[in-house]
Design a protein around this nucleic acid. Structure first.
Lengths: 158, 158
DNA sequence: AACTACGTACAGAATAAACTGTACGTAAAA
DNA sequence: TTTTACGTACAGTTTATTCTGTACGTAGTT
């Protein structure tokens, strides 16, 4: 292996660690990292070969990455296989997908909690007075979800 | 089980899901959630009993939570066992620990990448001219880390 | 000083996640 | 139309993570 390839590989491995922090699996992270550093769009077979993993693994990883808009499929005349390339707007694309995930989850969880409470109240279930602090805690939890959602909405790139 | 306990348990399970998003394990999340909803500080044995898990598991979870300043130990005269309570400032404590983790990691990773590059350059390893875009990509990666760090520093609660 | 009870290290067991190989549906090529 | 090559579903295997039980060091109690 040439020195340049070694250098590229080192960077790939290191960059992948960062990408994992965005809730991507190790394999997804490596695939993205490799694809980003590649000089051209690659096929599943090429990536499988380069990373020493199965084609199924590549297919799954690429699909998840594409769902998150971190990777996109490109077409090239005369090439039958699917070609993929990494989105080059690192900060924007990673942050957007990550923040969206948070917003969605926080909102979903808040709804769940509110529904649980409403149902309980409708059925006449309430915390006894001596547990009044528990009602306050539940409010605090719901407010927490709201605050998280608000924060992430605020920092979401436009 | 009383209706009130059932309600509490439902909320506990739901809240735990949110907490997991802050990179806590399922068990850590459940412990925090249970502790937060509890009316008083609890011992390891009480939590192990309530959650149906081993004391070792509680000990590990509590330690991690304490390291993240999400749980704190309290003392009560005459009680020999360690007592723990959940930090009630949900938004502040979770966000602070989470953001700190990001800042630390982004900074660490950026340093690693810069070191790799510097070493390679010192050894005379450079990307050939036709791969000039690769040098640009590396710069972009490093800049990406910087941007992530900057963003999280900006939103860090004071 | 001897005893008891606590929290945790450590190694192994159980559980969950990631990865692979085969087999199939589909679409391009012959 | 037949053949070939592609991507992916699915079930099973491997690997990693989480959890448990025992065993030990330490500190409080008698």
């Amino acid at each position: 292996m040439t020195e340049v390839k070694q250098l590229t590989e080192k960077v790939m491995i290191e960059f992948a660690k960062t990408i994992e922090m965005f809730d991507l699996s190790p394999m997804e992270a490596r695939v993205f990292s490799y694809l980003y550093l590649a000089d051209e769009a690659l096929t599943l077979d090429e990536m499988a070969e380069a990373l020493g993993k199965s084609k199924t693994s590549m297919s799954n990883s690429i699909r998840n990455l594409a769902d998150l808009n971190l990777v996109s499929q490109v077409w090239k005349k005369g090439v039958r296989k699917d070609l993929y390339q990494a989105n080059t707007q690192l900060f924007k694309s990673f942050m957007t997908s990550y923040i969206n995930k948070w917003i969605e989850a926080a909102n979903y969880q808040k709804d769940n909690l509110e529904t649980i409470l409403e149902q309980a109240h409708a059925e006449g279930v309430r915390f006894p007075d001596e547990e009044g602090t528990k009602e306050e805690k539940l409010s605090a939890i719901i407010e927490f979800h709201q605050d998280v959602e608000t924060l992430f909405r605020k920092i979401k790139p436009q």
